[in-house]
Design a protein around this nucleic acid. Structure first.
Lengths: 259, 259
DNA sequence: TTCCATAATATGTCGGAGTAAATAAGGAGA
DNA sequence: TCTCCTTATTTACTCCGACATATTATGGAA
């Protein structure tokens, strides 16, 4: 769609926001390819609700032209979105956004797109609920299966957490490392994959907390209790301590988001 | 690399296995596009271990030629695998298989590729462990949040299960519907997404059980107990009943796989 | 030996042409 | 008038060949 001849305004909602993309500049971070940038843009647009489930995107040629990219790059981006269950395309019918229950919401990249804008509070609650299910169970397994290297990783992360606060990136990284070490000690691949998703979500929600206000609570003692139970091989104690930890985090986030 | 002047046989491993693919025939089921077929082939090859983490695939032109497909189709397939965390490609360095902990193992399609061949028994155990964590918690939430339509869906699925056995596709579908209805009643998007993965895994493992021998146990009473507890709003009872159900399924699968 | 300019190589992007599939339109037959 | 089959048309799908870009390897100068 060359701006000077936009006579084919066949689709519904293109008119008002034609000051669109032009890609390949600010949206395209370093190291990210063009098709990756397109996928990121479309992904965030879909997750933010700009394109709702059931909507059919404009055709390949039109949309690629609109974004000022080649059809190849656009198509490769669409394949990415298709792989994550966000869209599906068929000849003649076009490319349409799939219903939400088809989205791979636990895909790390999709989660990133969801949190790129303002995520729905309901979805954040869902993630915390999942975390409240997974992590105590993981702590229980970790207490049964951990070895010395696992304990060392947890202890190191705990030490890092003592040196920084959750308001710093280093502190959040240490927090993630601690939880990641626990997941790793479960020796369960599937749980570890969830670790990537949950860890990312936890990271973003702690950023929320930081945005709202400084953290009132000192998280070290709660984490230390989890570590002690795992080190002692106390499965039920580890599960219970982790339960408390997650509940407190949920509490903090809830009050932060209501402010 | 024009076919009539193929004197440049620079790559390493083309010689011995040149009787390879030719795609677009038996591997390409109806409704599946060419790039989807390529992604399926490469995905199963990676999950089966034919390409191990760290391996670098032959170059685009060479591999596309080997599969007798265009570079475009091959590239789109690679984008799919990249989106699922199986591979990553960089200019000059080539496309290499990522370590296992980067794979999105809970992606339904990836799970399908994993079960296309003979899945590692350890991985199946991991999935059941995850299921044993998720489903009782889901049943607990479902008991608290279900409405009439949820109960009707469960009841219908239960009725279907009574009419068929798990040796038939209809019976397995009913079993999946029952568990899916419970997940849906939790009102938790993240849990529902896991439903797709777990449901698929359960389906494939029940197929395993069937392959080994006919099911000895009648699954109806166990399922009915879960339903009764959810219908009664008994959260702890639902969790406990589901716990038993998952344990029994694990038991059956374990004995079937050891035979 | 170290460092920087240069070349080599593989992925990335582009534009265009043609194929195949799914829907819509139209016409023949009942 | 309705049904069914044929035909058009639209759209995604595939292919091709070329060029751009990024990264590594190479080789020469300091």
């Amino acid at each position: 769609m060359f701006p000077e001849v936009h006579e084919t305004v066949t689709d519904t909602k293109r008119t008002k926001e034609s000051e669109n993309a032009k890609m390949g500049e600010e949206t395209r971070g370093p190291g990210r390819r063009l098709h990756g940038a397109i996928a990121h843009k479309l992904g965030t647009d879909i997750l933010s609700g700009k394109y709702a489930p059931g909507d059919v995107l404009s055709g390949e040629v039109a949309f690629a032209e609109e974004l000022q990219v080649s059809r190849s790059a656009y198509r490769e981006a669409i394949q990415v979105l298709t792989a994550k269950g966000l869209v599906a395309s068929r000849p003649k019918a076009g490319t349409r956004v799939l219903p939400r229950d088809r989205w791979n919401l636990l895909d790390p990249e999709v989660l990133g797109w969801a949190f790129a804008g303002e995520p729905e509070i309901e979805f954040v609650r869902n993630l915390f609920e999942l975390r409240a299910i997974i992590e105590p169970a993981a702590a229980r397994l970790a207490a049964q299966r951990r070895d010395k290297s696992d304990l060392k990783a947890m202890k190191d992360a705990l030490g890092e957490m003592r040196r920084h606060t959750l308001t710093t990136e280093a502190g959040r990284a240490a927090d993630r490392d601690f939880h990641s070490a626990i997941l790793h000690a479960t020796r369960n691949q599937a749980l570890m994959v969830l670790s990537a998703s949950i860890g990312a979500a936890v990271n973003w929600t702690t950023q929320f907390k930081q945005r709202a206000r400084a953290l009132p609570r000192n998280p070290i003692p709660d984490h230390a209790r989890v570590y002690d139970a795992i080190a002692a091989g106390d499965a039920e104690g580890a599960a219970e301590a982790m339960n408390i930890l997650v509940d407190l985090a949920l509490e903090d986030t809830r009050s932060a988001m209501s402010s």
